[in-house]
Computed example of a mutant assay.
Amino acid sequence: MRLVVEQLTAGYPGRPVVHGVDLTVPEGQVVAVVGPNGCGKSTLLRAIARLHQPESGTVRIGDADVWALTPRRAAHRIALLPQSPQAPEAVTVAGLVRYGRHPHQGLFRQWSREDEQAVESALRATGTAELAGRRLDQLSGGQRQRCWLAMVLAQETPIVLLDEPTSALDLGHAVDVLELVREVAAAGRTVVMVLHDLASAARYADTVVALRDGRIVAHGPSREVVDAALVRELYGIEADILSAPGDGSPVVVPAARATTPTAAPAPAA
Rank of each mutant, 00 (worst) to 15 (best):
A218M: 11
A150R: 04
A125I: 12
E238D: 15
A229R: 15
I216R: 10
A174C: 12
V226L: 14
R232F: 04
D22P: 04
P85V: 02
A174W: 04
G172F: 14
A268R: 05
I61H: 00
R135W: 09
Q105A: 07
L136W: 05
P250F: 11
D176Y: 12
S249K: 05
A205C: 03
D170R: 12
R15H: 14
A210P: 07
V253F: 13
D206Y: 02
H76E: 06
L23C: 08
R124D: 14
R113H: 11
D65S: 14
Q155R: 00
W111Q: 05
L149C: 11
Q53F: 09
V25R: 04
H196Y: 12
E238N: 14
L44C: 05
E130C: 01
E6K: 14
E114W: 11
D213W: 07
A228P: 07
V66A: 04
A263F: 11
V194Y: 07
G100V: 12
E6F: 03
L178P: 04
R101H: 08
R50K: 15
V175M: 10
A210T: 10
R101M: 07
V251G: 06
V253K: 04
L149A: 06
D247P: 07
G133R: 06
V208E: 12
D115G: 00
T92S: 15
D137Y: 04
T259A: 15
P267W: 01
L3N: 00
V34I: 12
G220S: 10
S84M: 09
Q145S: 09
P13I: 13
D170L: 13
L69T: 11
A94M: 10
V194N: 04
P221S: 02
E156F: 01
V252L: 10
A263D: 13
T70K: 09
R232Y: 05
V34T: 05
A239C: 13
H104I: 03
R113A: 15
G28Q: 03
D115I: 00
E156M: 07
A154M: 03
W111S: 11
R135I: 08
Q105D: 03
T166P: 08
E27D: 01
T260K: 13
L230A: 09
A94V: 11
I216T: 15
S249L: 06
V192C: 03
V5P: 00
G172K: 15
G142I: 07
R72H: 07
A256R: 14
P158E: 00
L23N: 04
